[in-house]
Amino acid sequence: MRGKPEPSFADLDRRPFVAGCQAAVPIAIGYLPIGITFGLLAKAVSIPNHITLMMSMLVLAGASQFVGINLIILGTSIWEIVLTTFVVNLRHLLMSASLAPRVDTRLRKTHRAILAFGITDETFSVASFRPEASLGFSYLLGLNMTSFIAWNLGTWMGLFLATGMPDALKTSMGIALYAMFIGLLVPACRNSRPILSIALTAIVLQALWHFSPIFSGMSMGTQIVLTTIIASFLGAVMMEREEGL
């Protein structure tokens, strides 16, 4: 296929791979307590352990796994569960599309398909905010794999080491991923007025969906998708006007 080489572990460059693993440290700090909570919850409602472990391995998405467990114990139909999962995670379509032009153009489709498995809100955010123009296979694999391992290790700990972590520490660590998002977004807003206005627009839209009774039926996934589309669209319009002058 266009002379691109077959993926193999020989493609793995050690330095970018390690850089990817290191970049995943804040993600891992955030995933561990949520994974533990997920494992504990699934066990508490008598979901078989192998099902819980398989879910963390195959689905790898915090919100929809919690929703999924919830729907399973409510006895919801398969198709309702699957449809809900699909809607909650549709935002990854936008994230994947945004990340696609940033990925090394020399990568084969198989490489891309492997990397796509590890795209989450968190890995997408960290990768997007990398300064380099083109992101390579090794870096992204290190980032995604470390995050995947942390999520699954957390689930495992919740299931088998029921005590896991002291409660006060676990609730405090609930802020970890949000602190990471803040750590990515705030410096970018300091550098650029358009970015600041896009971020603020997104927050105002989210507040609108959240606090206005008209939109109370909208799911979390739909809210994020709508917000992202509107705010990014406004950004692109602003950019076009500026360049048009």
């Binding site: 994230m95 945004s98 809100d121 997408f124 997007s128 917000t227 992202t228 990014s232």
Partner: peptide, 18 residues
């Protein structure tokens, strides 16, 4: 391209709040 380039900032705003 510009639209997709702004997605990370919009997504982060949306993920952080509320």
């Amino acid at each position: 391209r510009n639209f997709l380039g702004f997605v990370p900032y919009a997504v982060l705003g949306a993920l952080i709040f509320p």
